[in-house]
Write a protein that binds this DNA or RNA. Structure first.
Length: 550
RNA sequence: GGCCUGUUGGUGAAAUGGUUAACACAUUGCCCUCUCAAGGCAACAUUCACGGGUUCAAAUCCCGUACAGGUCACCA
């Protein structure tokens, strides 16, 4: 077979040589131990939590090693592409603050970083394979392929386009010319030199050594539209772009023999591989499946932005899934960032990990509890400007006051952990503002010890916003004694009949009057921030409420 | 069906042949000069899917079974 003639028949004349590209994209000059990873999304929609997980890991490994993390958009499937797909991915990555070293928009020495713009490169390498007799055109229609599959199923043979089932493998040049003249559609397939009896070993950074049969499938490398398949683009790009560790979902391990062969046939040195186990979810009792963007809300990125769970909190959770000892490290190093942690591939889970929203919440609470009130204020403000503008303007109107409110029980040894998202802040502090305080005390059950006289006595004769916490508490005790409540709980427990109630009850009336709810953060701090005037007003509203509901 | 992987408590998991199977989340109970949150203490796997084997000794090694997951496209 005259491969040169075949190549001329199949490819455009002005294609640059593979040597040209090899020279253009020289090997990267990396310092010892530096690794190059990439994220390679397809523009078929917004990214989801599984993508995020994989990108997070990839970035962590690249940057902790002093290497490069680049973005390559894999848009070789025209059918699944959505409008503004590339932009939407770029936006999502920005929202999650990935530090991308090279990619569309930013550029880099190994571009273009969008596969549809690299068509000539793939075609040049495909041509080189044809020239070497390692690739050929295949004219089999979908129907023919299906027929082959059926006959293999019937005779219980391995399914696929290989060996004697690869009908177009041995087409003569004349037959090919004839078909091309008739404008028959064709793809370019690899003429696999593999033998199914041989073994290939994947030494995966996460999963360890996996032995698989060598590939003998004549896989498609160029589709009929002239665009490469994933397999071929992966080999060409990850070699030319100098990826040193290919991080991807573990659904790819079974096609590793194809990739291994493609690299070898193209004369490329193989990168290392890290196949990441999926994030899963339990459906019913026994079914475990991959988290799905369509079925599971928590798989969507919008779930987190709408709830106001910050990117860092999400990453903190992903970090604990990635390396379980991260969690301990993080509690022991409260002043460090997750990027200071040294992640290791071999600590990653080999099977899947169940995605636990409750655990994420708990990690998010820790994150929020470590924020300075001022920073919390600023971030929360950004969130509410987007999702609740009315509240945002109230926060801004009383900015200093709001920061003080957010600072309640914050700068202590054991800060509160009640905020798990920006959205939860509204519920937690809204009663501190007159504009949002519920003057009608909706939903408040009146108890017999809700005495208005006690409250009035408190505000006129005891309350002083300059009191220390101890002074405040002693005054509450005095108030108890004066109004027939037990200031000492042990005494109360011993003989409850002697009292109207205990100190908890007194605090409860004050709390309900001041906040409209039975539970709140530290009462002392709240009363101090509210100030005399506000409290007085609220006693007024409370009196009205009690009067109307006697 | 072929090929590959996995299986430790409700969940994530540690322990890579050697005492009572870490830790975290969740749950429950108790404690803490006011409620909640936090924090402290305690409870929660007679046992590491099951069955065999190797060994003085196995969650850890070997074999088989079951179950679960992945993959077998001109989709990535």
């Amino acid at each position: 077979m005259d491969y040169e003639k075949l190549a001329d028949l199949l490819f455009e004349k002005d294609l640059k040589s593979t040597e040209y590209y090899e020279k253009l994209y020289s090997r990267r000059n990396l310092k010892e131990g530096a690794i190059v990873t990439r994220c390679a999304p397809s523009p078929t929609g917004r990214i989801h939590i599984g993508n995020l997980y994989s990108y997070f890991i990839s970035e962590a490994f690249a940057h902790q090693s002093g290497g490069i993390f680049f973005l390559r958009v894999e848009d070789t499937d025209k059918k699944r592409a959505i409008e503004n797909g590339v932009q939407s991915i770029l936006d999502d990555l920005k929202e999650y603050n990935f530090k991308i070293d090279e990619g569309p928009e930013i550029g880099g020495d190994y571009g273009p970083y969008i596969q549809s713009e690299r068509k000539d490169i793939y075609r040049s390498f495909a041509k080189s394979l044809v020239l070497k007799g390692l690739a050929y055109p295949c004219f089999c229609s979908e129907d023919v392929l299906e027929e082959i599959r059926f006959s293999q199923e019937r005779s219980k043979k391995r399914i696929g386009y290989y060996g004697k089932y690869a009908r177009c493998r041995n087409l003569t040049l004349e037959e090919i010319e004839e078909k091309l003249k008739n404008k028959e559609d064709f793809v370019i397939r690899l003429k696999s030199p593999g033998n199914f009896e041989n073994k290939v070993i994947l030494d995966d950074l996460i999963k360890g050594k996996i032995e698989m049969p060598e590939n003998d499938l004549d896989v498609v490398i160029l589709k009929s539209d002239g665009i490469p398949t994933y397999h071929f683009a992966h080999a060409v790009d990850d070699y030319l772009m100098g990826t040193t560790v290919v991080t991807r979902g573990d659904e790819w391990v079974s096609s590793y023999p194809i990739h291994d062969q493609l690299f070898k046939v193209l004369g490329f040195s193989l990168p290392k591989f890290a196949h990441i186990a999926p994030l899963t979810k339990k459906e019913g009792e026994n079914v475990i499946r991959k988290l799905s963007k369509r079925k599971d809300n928590e798989a969507k990125i919008s779930y987190y932005s709408e709830k106001g769970i910050p990117d860092v909190a999400v990453k903190l959770y992903l970090a604990t899934i990635a390396n379980p000892d991260f969690e301990r490290w993080y509690t022991e190093n409260p002043d460090k960032s997750y990027s200071d942690f040294k992640f290791e591939f071999d600590k990653m889970s080999v099977g899947g990990s169940l995605f636990d929203v409750i655990k994420l919440q708990s990690i998010s609470k820790i994150y929020f509890s470590r924020l300075k009130a001022k920073d919390l204020y600023e971030e929360a403000l950004k969130y509410f400007k987007k999702y609740n503008n009315e509240f945002a303007s109230i926060m801004e109107k009383y900015d200093a006051y709001t920061i003080n409110v957010l600072n309640i029980e914050r700068e202590t040894l054991r800060p509160r952990k009640d905020i798990d998202s920006y959205s939860s802040i509204y519920e937690i502090i809204s009663y501190m503002y007159d504009e949002l305080f519920d003057k009608e005390y909706k939903g408040v059950d009146i108890k017999e010890f809700y005495e208005i006289e006690l409250l009035k006595d408190y505000i006129t004769n005891y309350y002083d916003e300059n009191d220390t916490k101890d002074e405040w508490f002693s005054k509450i005790k005095l108030l108890c004694d004066k109004h027939g409540f037990a200031s000492d709980n042990k005494e109360f427990k011993a003989s409850p009949e002697r009292f109207k109630g205990n100190i908890s009850n007194v605090c409860e009336v004050i709390r309900v009057m001041a906040t409209g709810r039975v539970q709140s953060p530290d009462l002392y701090e709240i009363l101090k921030l509210l100030g005399k005037k506000r409290i007085n007003d609220r006693i007024g509203y409370f009196e009205k409420y009690l009067g109307e509901n006697k």
